[in-house]
Amino acid sequence: MSTLVLLSLTGLGLGALYFLVASGLSLIFGLADVLNFAHGLFLSVGAYGTWWAADRLGLGFVPAAAVGVGLGALAAVLVELLLIRPLYARPIDQVLVTVGLSLAGVALLQAGFGADPVTFPKPAWTEETTTVLGATVPNDRFLLIGVALAVLALLQLFLHRTRFGLIVRAGVEDRAMVTALGINVRIAFTVVFAIGGAAAALGGVLAGVYYGDVSPGQGTSLLIFAFIVVVIGGMGSVAGSALAAVVVGLVQQFTSYYAAAGVGEASVVLVLAMVLLARPGGLTGRTA
């Protein structure tokens, strides 16, 4: 029983991480049709920004994380304005540019901070444990799940209760129509990039807490799982991403524990294959 609880909470924590990366990815893809390979870079910017602020500026964990998230959002806005915006008429080229950016960005991080992982400044209380239903659970799991739930709630509030959210939702549905009605969708693109970048950077901070260190390649490997989550959840759907992130996190944890290390990742791809065979549009049934 205690193993089940621990595995479930760890799986949910991992799912929370995936959700933070996937939600922005999904919104950006749904609205702007950009498959953003540079999203892993935003994550790394958040993680390294936090590490830098805590290590070099001597800030506490929360202000340092705020610096990291701010830098991630800034990076996302700059990428959108400078690199993606001129290419909205050329969707394949956008993908190519973000691919180039992700490779160059990882190399740049490696040049700046070294290829070896740096130790992440996690707050002391995340190293302690809490006993839940007989299971000893590290506190960082609760942090991950709590933050992801808060981000999900905020995103839903933004999408369903604000005027901007309405424009974003309408744009995901039919961008040409929204443009034809005289609404400037381009600003919504920038906003979605900023939100996605901030969420990914927050994911980077939490990944630092979860894994205990940060390395240049971390963003890319998390990004691949975020891609899987986006495809399973249905592109453009935040709720779908949340559901798929939970499924992927749990499947990965349980199969890793009961089978072998490597099998967890393979079974995630198996889930992806099954979903695609049954519902090519993803769980929420939207066609991409």
Binding site: F29, L35, V95, S221, I224, F227, I228, V230, V231, M235, E265, V268, V269, L272, A273, L276, L277, P280, A288
Partner: peptide
């Protein structure tokens, strides 16, 4: 079985 970007992601996942 999937087109375009989804195909790209599925192949990426397989390589991973």
């Amino acid at each position: 079985r999937v087109r375009g970007i989804a195909f790209a992601m599925v192949t990426l996942a397989m390589a991973q």
